[in-house]
Write a protein that binds this DNA or RNA. Structure first.
Lengths: 159, 159
DNA sequence: TTGAAATTGAATATGATTATCAATTGATAT
DNA sequence: ATATCAATTGATAATCATATTCAATTTCAA
């Protein structure tokens, strides 16, 4: 398992895998080979993946894994708080590793690159605006769509 | 920081209806009774409606109107630039009249009230954040979810 | 009034996700 | 190890919102 450069979320998902095992035990569930494969593939992807993409990766290891199992496993990861589902207007969910910090997203409309960011001043101003309208905000969604640096340059070439 | 009430749409949608007629003529399409009913109901609603809600309203005028026609008409309104579709995480689209000004949304998670707002300072900061990550933003989505003034007070009572 | 072209409504298709269910597998007690 | 029993799997069917198909109807221009 190539560990790659230091990811933002702990290394290789060791910690995460332990947390999942704990959740599974605590819930009286069982560990399975498929589940391990899927979780492995998910954390190895290191990006926002769809179930379809994940299934493809998993099937490179074991072609017999069914789509339903991937859906079920991702649901489990979300329930256990280790992943979260996002909608970027594509009609299908993308999953990301659940970090401790809240963040929003920059999405390149050409190549699909997704960058996470956080900005406290924007968050603070959202609070102000909400209060001004009598709202108390519990959560929010902010997505900025446009072209990433690379696609601004090579906008003419194919993706 | 210009922030104000949502754009005042012409009363009765006179202007809008004319614009739609123009679009229809220019595209070589035809006007129909159902279409008029649906557009009428949409602009009379004066709020973010789903196709389902709209169909119900339309059927009070003519029970024989089909759902497909509502879908088709809303698509037409969106194409013509007179309405826009929004996703507030409910799994079905809500349509709003297309004003001239860009705006974002405050959504009450209890009663479903949707308030439009605009805030130039937030928009400006979004630009800054994007540029910092090498992105050029073309559009964005910002939704603040929480409780509206009324629901904060009467959170115990039924909606 | 006519006739081609657009529209309608019902039914069917679609695409993502969830639920069903018989067969299989994993954890545990023996 | 083995038996046991609940959890899991994979295929398939079911959902749900929306799109599409198609025969019947309606619109509009000539």
């Amino acid at each position: 398992m190539s560990e790659g450069p230091a990811p933002a979320y702990g290394t290789g998902g060791q910690k995460v895998r332990a947390a999942l095992a704990a959740y599974i035990a605590q819930k009286g569930l069982k560990g399975t080979r498929q589940r391990d494969l899927i979780v492995e593939a998910f954390f190895a992807a290191r990006r926002h993946v769809t179930v379809e993409e994940l299934l493809e990766r998993v099937r490179q290891q074991d072609p017999r894994v069914g789509a339903a199992t991937v859906y079920r496993t991702m649901k489990l990861l979300v329930e256990s708080g280790l992943a979260s589902a996002r909608q970027f207007g594509e009609g299908q969910a993308r999953y990301e590793m659940a970090g401790d910090r809240h963040h929003d997203h920059l999405i390149c409309t050409r190549c699909g690159t997704i960058v996470e960011f956080e900005n406290d001043r924007i968050e603070a101003m959202q609070e102000v605006v909400a209060r001004r309208h009598g709202f108390s905000v519990t959560h929010h969604k902010m997505e900025l769509y446009g072209l990433c640096r690379n696609c601004q340059r090579h906008g003419d070439r194919k993706v």
